[in-house]
Design a protein around this nucleic acid. Structure first.
Lengths: 176, 176
DNA sequence: CGATTTCACTTAACATGTTAATCATCTGCC
DNA sequence: GGCAGATGATTAACATGTTAAGTGAAATCG
């Protein structure tokens, strides 16, 4: 908890003008930096996905399904990084479009097991070339080594924050 | 693409086998890395914001408004990095809650000028200490220098991609 | 001027993010 | 076996993301 308030005070003089240089500090916050970077990346992919009638999340799910034979919904949510409710809706739609197949797990009827269909695979194969070309272009422009370094730093950040959450819970704040 | 199919039977311990190293390449893509990192960051802030009845976007807007006297909607969308329709809805709600004030520009009745209200300022001041403490904690955990380097790399990436878009348009694809 | 086009929003419509509640099954314990 | 609590998945409700269409005001051009 010990935290010295050092650069938190600089906001007074950062607001030197209040009219020009609109919120330099704010737009440079970490969440904003990450948001803008991700948006800049996705803006490259969205048109191609859209041409094939897929949203970004639908693509993530189908893409994930190509790497496994079948997978339970909860596990799919984890790998595709979607919350349960979003995944539920999307799976319903993808199933209606016959891009995926779903069945109940024999040993536990609560669990649903999902897999990609032949039609879904065909769709993926139609989109993949463009996507990979875009990804290659990004890698080329930014630099493969730099890109790897960036992703490494993002991974470290992610793990730092998970550790931070754990640290915050080990007191007695599990009250509800 | 090649991934050896293990087993999806034996539901109980399938979780054991399947959860290790599934789709390594996919979950390591740049968009996923950025998404997970940002989510890990925002997960730290959301509870505090929620306690004050604010969403992330509402906070972004109010926070942006504290750095200027008044600002036009389009410009606010640019700084807070929100699309017009989202901003329209949020401004409507914030205005109903009397956290902001809105008036038409004298010189151009199409434009609306927004500013934060006294009530909005008070709310910001109530939330800011916690937010800044969290941000300081993140900075401390990850390292201030490393954080600055990360944000710099994100900025470079963003500019690379903008340049990439421009390059894609300079042929004749401005057809409708 | 006056019609047309452009511009600054705003609405509409649909998909997802987010949290809470619901539902069905499962598990542990008696 | 049966019941209370845990668990997997879905549904509900509201907020935002995203693209397209609509609205009113301003700029442009004939």
């Amino acid at each position: 908890m010990a935290r010295k308030k050092s650069q938190t005070e600089s906001s007074t003089e950062t607001t030197e003008t209040t009219r020009r240089a609109p919120m330099r500090d704010f737009s440079r916050s970490l969440p904003m930096s990450l948001l803008r970077a991700r948006e800049a990346v996705m803006r490259q992919f969205r048109p191609s996905l859209r041409n094939h009638g897929l949203t970004e999340q639908q693509w993530r799910i189908l893409r994930a399904l190509t790497t496994v034979d079948a997978i339970e919904v909860t596990e799919l949510a984890r790998v595709a990084f979607l919350l349960g409710p979003s995944l539920s809706r999307i799976l319903r739609d993808l199933e209606a479009r016959q891009l995926i197949e779903r069945r109940a797990a024999k040993a536990d009827l609560r669990r649903a097991v999902v897999s990609i269909s032949a039609k879904g695979l065909k769709l993926i194969e139609a989109v993949a070339p463009t996507s990979e070309a875009i990804y290659a272009e990004i890698t080329s422009r930014y630099g493969a080594r730099k890109l790897a370094e960036l992703q490494d730093m993002l991974g470290v950040l992610e793990r730092s924050l998970v550790a931070m959450e754990v640290a915050g819970e080990e007191s007695g704040e599990i009250e509800e």
